[in-house]
Computed example of a mutant assay.
Amino acid sequence: MSATMSTWRQYYALTKPRVVQLIVFCALIGMALAVPGWPSGSEWRTIGAACAGIWLVAAAAAAFNCLIEQHIDARMKRTAWRPTARGELSPRQALVFSALLCSAGAVVLLVWVNALTLWLTLATFVGYAVIYTVWLKPTTPQNIVIGGASGAMPPVLGWAAMRGELGAEAWLMCLIIFLWTPPHFWALALYRVEDYRRSGLPMLPVTHGSDFTRLQVLLYTWVLLAATLLPFLIGMSGWLYLVAALGLGLRFCWFGWRLYRDYSDELARRTFWFSIWYLTLLFAALLVDHYAAAWLY
């Protein structure tokens, strides 16, 4: 029994649960904002099916990523524990697991959501698992910037699930995640630079050095702050969101400035973890603002 549970835990680890949870959360925000007011009973069923389908396909992409990068993961302290890197799960097991998850997610999205969401989700799978993992990540220090396009898609998937079409609001949320991705990952790469150097991946701190990377983090935090004001400026959100966006954004810029002026691995680690809370709280504020406006007006 314990051996069976251990095997299931290994499969579960392949799905990168924390990453997938954030993906589904951002997709859920896109779904909620696509519906004026509180969702109806049928809309709740669509939301549940869309979350399940997106989770399955995102988990499949994560498992495929672990399969492709098993030898790289084995050379990095941060990822050496993964079942594929340790040889606890074979490449065939990881591939079959990924294929089953992707197939199940595709069926859920096609049958209980809509075809547009299915194709967009599968395109995101290809963008992350193939274009980013196989091509961009090992070949260019701009891998995070270019590959971030697929990681920024969850709100678009959520919007498509509820509307059956794509709206400007969905793409604006996508833009915010796209601009958040580089400072988030480069903060990690700064204090894990030796890991990336051993792995052979051309991450920006390895190819261009710490000073240049820290400058990029600082610049991106300010550009991100400007982008997060757009929902308020176009009437997509209200004052509650604006206050949250300004407070969180200025805090992120402060981290970027300190990182640029007085670097330490501990500060880079704190910046990385703050960036995760930043995105979570920013989108939560967008959600709360949406329902507050519906309740007030």
Rank of each mutant, 00 (worst) to 15 (best):
V19R: 06
L22S: 10
L22P: 14
I23R: 04
V24K: 06
F25M: 14
A34Q: 06
E43L: 13
G53Y: 04
I54W: 01
I54F: 00
W55C: 06
V57D: 00
A58E: 01
A58K: 01
A62H: 02
A63L: 07
N65R: 12
E69M: 11
E69H: 06
H71Y: 13
I72V: 15
K77H: 15
R78W: 02
R78V: 00
T79A: 07
A80V: 15
T84D: 12
E88P: 08
L89N: 08
L89K: 14
F97N: 01
S98V: 03
A99V: 10
L101T: 04
C102D: 12
C102H: 10
A104R: 03
G105H: 09
G105Y: 12
A106N: 08
A106S: 14
A106V: 06
V107H: 11
V108W: 10
V111T: 14
V111H: 11
W112M: 14
V113E: 02
T117W: 00
A123H: 03
T124W: 04
V126H: 07
G127L: 08
P138A: 13
T139N: 13
T139V: 09
P141D: 10
Q142L: 15
Q142E: 14
N143Y: 04
G147I: 13
G148A: 06
A149Y: 13
M153N: 01
